[in-house]
């Protein structure tokens, strides 16, 4: 069942809190250079899934493989250094640092020598270059010297993606990158994700169905912690169970 080129593969991944099963035996397969969207009603366990993949919480059972390597139970920083970058549902940047410093610090994480104590942080060219190209990619080039707390909401979400990009990942885990955005800002981020998907894999959790169907190469639908269906956008659109689940959960799936 597992193809050799799978970037990320989970098998029977589960997590329960007390008696509540938040993620129930999820098996997922992510291919390189694709956008794989995970959708489902609130409380379906999507954010828990991201936290499991990022190592923020440990699975109760099941395994996670990254490029064939078993990373189950690894610490978040170790997983991040292996090329998995995640963003958070609530904006999570360093508000007092400038946009450039946010990205530079992110790039620095690729090389975590504890004993770099003498040269100023800005004198490392590769980190500056990585930060600049990430800012350019996210259309933040003109905001480099601005402290993150004075950015607009949309810019801050873009900064968060730029920080992830500066860590040169193979895989992005994006938890609702469009949450709370206006139409214009959404369009910008959707375009950014499209550009990123040329040479990165993205696991995208998103409620905005227009964006999901515009972007996703594959879709997985989760309900009550378990995978209901998985397939191409067309197949999911035609899936009767998905229709029922969404109607049952009282969430209009306008794009269907």
């Amino acid at each position: 069942m597992s193809s050799p080129e799978a970037l990320l593969l989970t098998t029977g991944l589960s997590r329960s809190f007390g008696g509540l099963v938040a993620v129930d035996s999820v098996s997922l397969q992510l291919e390189p250079a694709t956008i794989h969207a995970v959708i489902g009603p609130n409380g379906a366990g999507k954010s828990t899934l991201v936290n499991l993949l990022a190592g923020e919480i440990k699975p109760s059972s099941g395994s996670i493989r990254l490029r064939g390597e078993d990373i189950t139970g690894w610490k978040p920083d170790r997983i991040a250094r292996r090329g998995v970058a995640r963003t958070f549902q609530h904006t999570n940047v360093f508000p007092d640092f400038t946009v450039f410093e946010n990205c530079r610090l992110a790039a620095q994480s690729r090389n975590v020598h504890l004993m770099r104590w003498l040269k100023p942080a800005e004198s490392y060219r590769e980190w500056n270059d990585a930060a600049r190209s990430a800012m350019a990619m996210a259309d933040l080039g003109g905001r480099a010297g601005v402290p993150a707390h004075s950015l607009s909401h949309g810019e801050r979400r873009a900064l968060e993606i730029a920080m992830s990009l500066a860590t040169a990942p193979a895989l992005f885990l994006l938890d609702e990158p469009l949450a709370g955005m206006g139409a214009e800002e959404s369009t910008r981020i959707v375009a950014l994700l499209k550009r990123l998907s040329a040479d990165h894999s993205i696991l995208l959790i998103e409620h905005d169905m227009d964006a999901v169907f515009a972007l996703a190469d594959r879709l997985t639908v989760m309900v009550n912690g378990a995978v209901l269906a998985s397939g191409s956008p067309g197949a999911i659109r035609a899936n009767a169970e998905v229709q029922a689940a969404y109607l049952g959960a009282d969430v209009p799936m306008t794009a269907l």
Partner: peptide
Amino acid sequence: GIKANEQRMRALGFPT
């Protein structure tokens, strides 16, 4: 960075 937001630093890959 760790003082400002340790969780974010870990998620970036820093062994905080």
